[in-house]
Amino acid sequence: MLAMILQGLGAAFLLIAAIGVIRLPDPLQRMHSATKAGTLGTTLLLLGVMASGELDRSGSGWLPILFLLVTLPLGAQLLARGSYLSGTRLEGLEDDPLAEELGRPRNATEQGTGIDLP
């Protein structure tokens, strides 16, 4: 029963993260939804699968959980910094104290790509 609850919660969080990727207005906000609600979803789903007791060996499920928890913040930070520096479109941001520090380009293109497509 506990396993099923964990699995259901995990899948629900993954679905919510995907809906957030569609609905939120700019890349940095989408990243909040995708990387972190997504991690919570996968962690809960893996825990639920391990707790179900239907596997021949479930010990190796801890490895992906640990690995995701260690690397996800690093990946999120790298991706956020990269997309920020590439001059992507940011909605609803009033003041930006980081612009002077890093020299972010002000003249991001209309499309919000910031970089030219190849």
């Binding site: 909040h32 609600a37 928890l69 996800l72 913040p73």
Partner: peptide
Amino acid sequence: SLTPGSTC
């Protein structure tokens, strides 16, 4: 970075 809704 790890808590949702905020990223360094």
